[in-house]
Design a binder for these strands. Sequence first.
DNA 1: CCGTATCTATATAACGTTATAGATGAGCGG
DNA 2: CCGCTCATCTATAACGTTATATAGATACGG
Lengths: 338, 338
Amino acid sequence: MGVSLKDIAERAGVSLATVSNVVNGYRPVGERTRQRVQQAVDELGYSPNLSARHLRRGRTGLIALAIPELTNPYFAELAEIAIREAAGLGYTLVMENTAADRDAEQLLLDGSRRQIIDGLILSPVRVGRAEVLDRRAGTPLVLIGEGVYDTPYDHIAIDNVAASHAAIRHLVAIGRRRIAFIGAPPGDERQSAQLRLRGYREALATAGLPFSPQLVARTDGFDRMEGRRAMRDLLALDEPPDAVFGYNDLIAIGALRALTEAGRRVPEDVAVVGIDDIEEGRFGAPTLTTIAPDKEAIGRLAVRRLVARIESTPAAGPLTVQTPFQLIRRESTAARAG
Amino acid sequence: MGVSLKDIAERAGVSLATVSNVVNGYRPVGERTRQRVQQAVDELGYSPNLSARHLRRGRTGLIALAIPELTNPYFAELAEIAIREAAGLGYTLVMENTAADRDAEQLLLDGSRRQIIDGLILSPVRVGRAEVLDRRAGTPLVLIGEGVYDTPYDHIAIDNVAASHAAIRHLVAIGRRRIAFIGAPPGDERQSAQLRLRGYREALATAGLPFSPQLVARTDGFDRMEGRRAMRDLLALDEPPDAVFGYNDLIAIGALRALTEAGRRVPEDVAVVGIDDIEEGRFGAPTLTTIAPDKEAIGRLAVRRLVARIESTPAAGPLTVQTPFQLIRRESTAARAG
DNA sequence: CCGTATCTATATAACGTTATAGATGAGCGG
DNA sequence: CCGCTCATCTATAACGTTATATAGATACGG
């Protein structure tokens, strides 16, 4: 179908190998022949067949970014960054949607895509350290976002515990005393949720506030719907909270909606904080205070580490990076109504 | 690196071709040998090298979905559907982000990815009928969403004009008279915006309402930020509108925010309608009335048409499908405050 | 018991690329 | 004029798969 090296070689009157060298620049080629070849390439409109190239080279030039949900704006924003970075490094990024499903994550770890991708960036939700440790596939792997530490793989995430501390400190500073947490996981999965919950408890202790199990709302999933449901439950308590810290912005936005529906004022009656700094939070009523991870750093670093692993055989030891974050104050925790 | 057909063949004591036939099932293989081969496959953990397969077959098994912005939830939701459908048909979907850039769209049309994908689903923004008509690449193409009609390619979209009619009819029905439109494109690109604007004008005429150019706000982009900016401009008019129809939900959400900031009540002072039915609109304050396209139909149909084009040489004529839509009434246009 | 149809299984040639080893010719000191 | 180096270029063998043509059995009617 397409124009191949052979066509160019015939047109320019040289060998296949020479054309290949002109195209790739591996070995020096004489100036006269180079020009002749280049002209033929331009005239016939040649572009290399990637399947053939990759068959020969043993690489495909594709990397995968596996995330639990594409419709969570946090991941969409992250993906946009990663796609850009990958393109800059000569790779094409394929999105995989695990839908937060254990089997889907396990399959990816074990290399269901092995033959098509050179490496994988995974944001695990259901699989933990054990599954990561005894995975079969040899493809390079970079983990992002969750707290799967002490594995032989690079890992990039914010310091979940510290992020929680910052959020709770802020709520305490504006005078809140009954602070709830929404987004405790039902089982022992979703390590980042465990860590954020831990940070929440530690920060309460530091502030000299009591920990009340009633104020920890479990959710089945981490979306707006569950945030709303959990907030309704909290409002039904005898002593409802005067502040809420959500596992992420989507949960927090769901909570905001429940508060609006119940006629509570935010932040006067209840203050709300989330994590992720998705754009949506800047446009709601009220706007949402949040912990903003450095998405640019996470996305770019993950891709760069993965590509480094793919391209260098003498791999360095596993790297664990904690990316910076920032508290962004908005209306949902304004000291006085804004 | 990986296990190849040859390894299996040696282990099972048969030829390469036989293993291939067991794996693919093209030609019948005796029961005894089939089992022996299958066992070897299982023991060694064989999976075919896709680069080699695709080199031989001339296909890659990848299709691309090119959209203007991944961070627009509408496209994220659409992508999720398309990924699922593609996987079901044995294809892997690669996301391309055109960032609403003319060059990026043009390159994709002309086959910058030609060697890596079997087909392309494009949501064009900047390129029009002319560019689509004289594209170079022979890869199958399916267009979605925009109004690029009368091309030799399949095209799937909602009836933009009719969707506008429905929105305006609704606003008129709840008693609005000064209805603004936000999201007119600056130049002549973004055909869907032109069509939605046309529907707006036609519907005004049908309702016997005057068309006022002042009430048509141009935007540079179609996101929340621009929606807010445009709404501020409209509020500065001598006679501000009593209703706003946004090109999409993001624009409408930006407008809602501007109204909140300006202290206007929605829907009492100004009613707001969008298009897309993104989940965000169901959780804002107020919730957003919108025209809901059938995303499931668009995503699945686009993938199915593309795969049909890829797999069948005797292609049928180009198909233009208008997918159904539905008006969803929420608080932003409630007759009485909700 | 032989030709012939019917199954199975095999050998082999592509697909388009790149890496390796080798061929060619010019330039040059001896 | 020979042998040597250096700079170019080429022939060829992979990479792992599938499609085509063919060879070896087995069964069957005559």
